[in-house]
């Protein structure tokens, strides 16, 4: 796994992984219109990065998206979700009040703050799961006398 897989796998992964990522973003953004939502979309985006990691080796994937960046993504998603929930109180109501205008149903911009919540959850799940995957890949038991 140090140097990744063969040339065939690399070429296919280079073609396929942007499409997987776009599909994940579509699943997140259309969460209030079609099946899907923040959680599966985030996992699909994370699996695109996992495909890159497996085919190109962990060094190159680590350059694309660092563990700390993924961790920041996760925390930012959680904060977006919480701030949106708290803004309901600010706009005169209760926690998780849908304070934005509902708009016309079956349009991309509709349903108040639900798409924004989906984006936050997608960031959180995608970043978090890829960060855990990177941590598992990079983890090694230190030998005696090393590190510390």
């Amino acid at each position: 796994m140090k140097n990744g897989m063969t040339l065939i796998v690399r070429v296919i992964a280079r073609f396929v992984s942007p499409m997987i990522m776009v599909f994940g973003i579509y699943i997140i953004l259309h969460g209030h219109l079609s099946p899907g939502g923040g959680f599966p979309g985030g996992v699909i985006i994370a699996s695109a990065f996992v495909l890159l990691t497996l085919s190109f080796g962990k060094e190159i994937a680590y350059q694309k998206l660092k563990e700390s960046t993924a961790s920041v993504m996760e925390s930012a998603g959680a904060l977006i979700f919480l701030i949106l929930a708290t803004l309901g109180i600010v706009f005169g109501g209760w926690f998780f009040l849908n304070f934005l205008p509902k708009g016309e149903p079956f349009r991309l911009i509709s349903a108040g703050f639900i798409p924004l919540c989906n984006i936050g959850i997608g960031l959180k799940v995608g970043g978090g799961i890829f960060a855990v995957f990177l941590t598992l890949i990079l983890f090694r038991l230190l030998e005696k006398g090393e590190g510390d």
Binding site: G31, H32, L33, S34, P35, G36, G37, A78, F81, L82, A85, F95, F96, N98, K102, G103, P105, F106, S110, A111, G112, I114, C117, N118, I121, K124
Partner: peptide, 24 residues
């Protein structure tokens, strides 16, 4: 009430948003 065409999302993020917060 929510304007969301997907009923599952409207339940997850509006009616039962506390559950989603706990899951997160």
């Amino acid at each position: 009430q929510t304007g969301s065409a997907n009923l599952v999302t409207s339940i997850l993020l509006d009616f039962r948003a506390y559950d989603t917060l706990g899951e997160a």
